[in-house]
Design a protein around this nucleic acid. Structure first.
Length: 575
DNA sequence: GCCGTTTTCGGCCCGACTGTTTTCAGTCG
């Protein structure tokens, strides 16, 4: 049983307990276990069973449940709950604005156990007659159902980030606005976000909230108060995402930014540390409890400093030990550290732009090198290059680099075939400056087979990096079953870099796997896998993913000068 | 149900907003 499956079960048990009316804190304990499991870099099935209790938020009782699930694939408690709580209620719980109390009320008083029966009960007016509800609440539920049906799950960072930028720019132009920044999971760089949180300082808060709800792209206003507004905004062709704007006092900006950036767990711990000093921390300020004196509030730095911890970069605010740091790391990877792109396609295979156009785009970004890595023979759909076409392409690439006086490299994104062999022979590979090996098709195979396939590729002396190692596509395809620990060990041993593919729908490696790779001493390369000149813009998504793993500049191959990258390639070939 | 430089029991975040309420409950983040 995988971590993802276990975590889903614990969350499901939490939902069912909550609908049953269980004490909130007990319910929350299950959610915390789910999160702990979700965060683990390695499979919990491989953990020593007698040490489960050492995991945070896992006590005796939860350890026994994990054990039961791993041993039998079942959980007695969950099955008992499932007999009591109809499955459809879990779906109803997902409707925005509908929480456990309402779900329980609908169930007990109207015997509603599915979205369908809820819809008809709303339409015949019986929901509106329930105590504490009315027509407005019922109508909101209908809208919530519609929202649920057209926006499945979370939105990719690469979709939410540009929207946040557009909205911030528009809000900055409103009269009286002093400052506006994105907070929330978007600021923390999570691969997907649930909503967008914006924090704003302005002269006339209610006016700004109102103007915000009328911005272009706002499709529905959910709330508009004196200091807070919520609206749905269109994203892409058929998606919407909720955006919350909070207007705060100038002096409270730091406290608000900290509070609304989260994570919840980071904030809870930070508040605990403040409490030990007799202070309280909320979205307005860090305050001395007895006197009400404001200790700090204007900037995040002030607040952290007062509490006695260094400023923590947002991407690392996940309560994974960061509050025990004595100083802020100064060498965490940034977009400015990136010196070149080592994964780019041209019209020779499936890219949209020519060698020259890609070269110009790289130059424009201030890169000092670029490697052209078109597909190999087997990627037929991507117009992969036969060795003969590849040789011609290489000549064109090298000539273009010479003409432009730019350090343009010839490489390949070569397919890892199902048996782990490489699509070009060694003689062909030896002509290249840099080789990324990627698995593009994942035939149904065991974890052992998949792992062996990647490891075999890494043992090839000409393979310098593994592209998008797990093959996942956010919201569309699960990562392949792989023993990532073993892969990281062999990557470190053979001098093969693992890629963080920065493409918005990949982010593969994930932050979690990047953390594991760091622990195993692997080198990382952050690539845009650019299929057009716009593709280079995605670098920031890869970089924040790395930052979430605590990735340092020196651990990232393409922050190095070209000479050092060439030495990295040469070192593996000489082994 | 977990956790502990305040503790093995008693906390565990709490304020904004909405709707249905005449003083508050539910939801959300």
């Amino acid at each position: 049983m995988t971590n993802a499956e276990l975590s889903r079960i614990f969350n499901e048990v939490a939902d069912m307990l909550e609908i049953e009316g269980t004490d909130f804190f007990r319910v929350n304990a299950y959610r915390r276990v789910a999160r702990t499991i979700d965060d683990l870099p390695s499979e919990i099935a491989d953990h020593p069973r007698d040490r489960l209790e050492e995991l945070p938020n896992v006590g005796k009782s939860q350890a026994a449940k994990i054990h039961e699930l791993l041993e039998t694939g079942r959980l007695e408690q969950r099955e008992k709950l499932a007999r009591e709580v109809p499955e459809g209620l879990l779906r109803i719980l997902e409707i925005p604005g509908t929480g456990p109390k309402r779900v329980r009320q609908l169930w007990k008083e109207l015997d509603i156990t599915s979205i369908e029966s809820l819809k008809s009960a709303i339409e015949d007016g019986s929901v509106a007659e329930l105590k504490g509800l009315g027509k407005k609440t019922a109508d909101k539920m209908l809208e919530g159902i519609a929202f649920l049906e057209r926006s499945s799950g979370r939105t990719r960072l690469s979709q939410a980030w540009p929207l946040a930028e557009t909205l911030c720019a528009a809000i900055r132009k409103l009269p009286g606005v002093k400052r506006v920044e994105a907070a929330g999971s978007l600021r923390r760089g999570r691969e997907t976000v649930h909503d967008v949180d914006l924090i704003c300082v302005a002269d006339n808060p209610p006016k700004i909230v109102e103007a915000f709800t009328k911005l272009s792209g706002a499709s529905k206003v959910i709330a508009a108060g004196d200091t807070k507004g919520s609206a749905l905004f269109a994203i892409g062709e058929d998606r919407e995402i909720q955006v919350d704007l909070r207007v705060v006092e100038k002096d409270a900006f730091g406290a608000a930014l900290l509070y609304f950036t989260g994570s919840k767990e980071h904030n809870v711990r930070l508040r605990g540390m403040a409490q030990k000093r007799g202070w309280t921390l909320n979205e307005y300020a860090l305050t001395e409890e007895e006197t009400g004196r404001v200790v700090a509030s204007k900037t995040e730095e002030d607040i952290y400093k007062a509490i006695g911890v260094p400023w923590i970069p947002p991407e690392l605010r996940e309560d994974r030990g960061e509050l025990e740091w004595t100083e802020t790391p100064t060498d965490l990877i940034t977009v400015e550290d990136i010196r070149g792109e080592l994964h780019a396609h041209t019209t020779a295979s499936d890219g949209r732009h020519s060698i020259e156009q890609m070269l110009e785009a790289a130059k424009k970004r201030g890169y000092s090198y670029l490697c052209i890595t078109d597909h190999s023979t087997s990627s037929v759909i991507a117009n992969g290059l036969t060795p003969e076409r590849m040789a011609e392409h290489a000549a064109a690439v090298r000539a273009a680099g010479k003409r432009a006086k730019f350090d343009l490299w010839m490489g390949s994104e070569v397919d890892i075939l199902p048996d782990g062999s490489i699509d070009y022979d060694d003689e062909t590979l030896a002509t290249l400056d840099w080789v990324i090996a990627s698995a593009h098709v994942w035939p149904q195979a065991s974890l052992e087979h998949n792992t062996e396939r990647i490891i075999r590729a890494m043992r090839n002396p000409y393979v310098n990096a593994i592209g998008h190692p797990t093959g996942r596509l956010l919201g569309r395809r699960e990562e392949a079953a792989l023993d990532m620990d073993a892969i990281c060990r062999v990557a470190a041993e053979t001098g093969t870099a693992l890629e963080i593919n920065a493409t918005g729908h990949r982010l593969d490696l994930s932050d979690r796997h990047t953390r594991l790779a760091r622990e195993r001493g692997c080198k990382i390369v952050i690539n845009c896998d650019a299929h057009s000149i716009d593709g280079f813009e995605q670098m920031r998504y890869g970089v924040v993913t790395g930052r979430r793993a605590g990735l340092r500049k020196d651990e990232v191959v393409n922050t190095w000068p070209a000479k050092r990258v060439r030495e990295f390639v040469a070192a593996k070939r000489e082994r």
